[in-house]
Design a protein around this nucleic acid. Structure first.
Lengths: 121, 121
DNA sequence: CGTTGAGTTCGATAGACGTCGTACAGTTCG
DNA sequence: CGAACTGTACGACGTCTATCGAACTCAACG
């Protein structure tokens, strides 16, 4: 069996189909930004399941809300998702984003850390 | 007379008051992204007037719409604005943005150029 | 002082967006 | 098969946002 869940098609945009404004809009949402940060923090090649992201990030949003945000991140080209049995795995598309906009993701993800501290400590 | 137009207060956020999500949201709007790109392209220390931005960028939006976008950019911490007589000048706050999120603005502004070209030319 | 020019503010409106509950589709396990 | 688990799709609701026109403020110019 190749694709378990054929109903839910997982269309990922190609490198040249990704738009900068879509990426920025996706990351402009606080919860989505935290989701990306959480996914990045673990960053296993196997990816992590959506449930893992929910737990690690401490997100209290409903399933449908989380699913919606995953969709936005995926369509923006920020993450890849694939099925493993009944669970879905997610991973950052660093290769794509870094190739298209070098330094962008680094700047944003690094910012998340310094954002908590004082400006000049 | 110190401030000609005291009615229209120009409050600029301080460095530590600027939020990443606000910056990303501001730049996620295509017209605002183009406005920033236009402001950056000229980049004089005197800044350029709002009318100059409008002309150089070829924006056809109404005055009120432009004014709204300027406000968003200013409150996000991306630009500084000041009055010179009846005209308003605008300049990028690269110092602030670069200090807070190194590489972010570079990545985004550089992207605007490569965005027009083929992915691998 | 009236006119023009530059920008803001104030509604209004239409569309997008975040959130949720419910219903549904697959997978896994007993 | 039925139950539990994982995740999506849909409709609804409230909020935010981009856009505009009209009325306004202030500066510059006559």
């Amino acid at each position: 069996m190749e694709s378990q869940v054929e109903q839910y098609e997982l269309t990922h945009p190609s490198a040249d189909a990704v738009e900068l404004t879509a990426v920025l809009a996706a990351l402009a949402e606080p919860m989505r930004l935290n989701m990306v940060r959480t996914i990045e923090a673990v960053g296993a090649d196997d990816g992590m399941t959506c449930l893992d992201v929910r737990e690690k990030g401490g997100f209290t949003a409903s399933k449908s809300t989380l699913s919606h945000h995953y969709k936005v991140l995926r369509e923006a080209g920020l993450v890849v998702m694939w099925w493993v049995g009944a669970k879905k795995h997610v991973r950052l598309r660093r290769e794509l984003v870094d190739a298209r906009w070098p330094g962008l993701l680094d700047a944003i993800l690094r910012a998340e850390l310094t954002d908590q501290k004082a400006p000049q400590g």
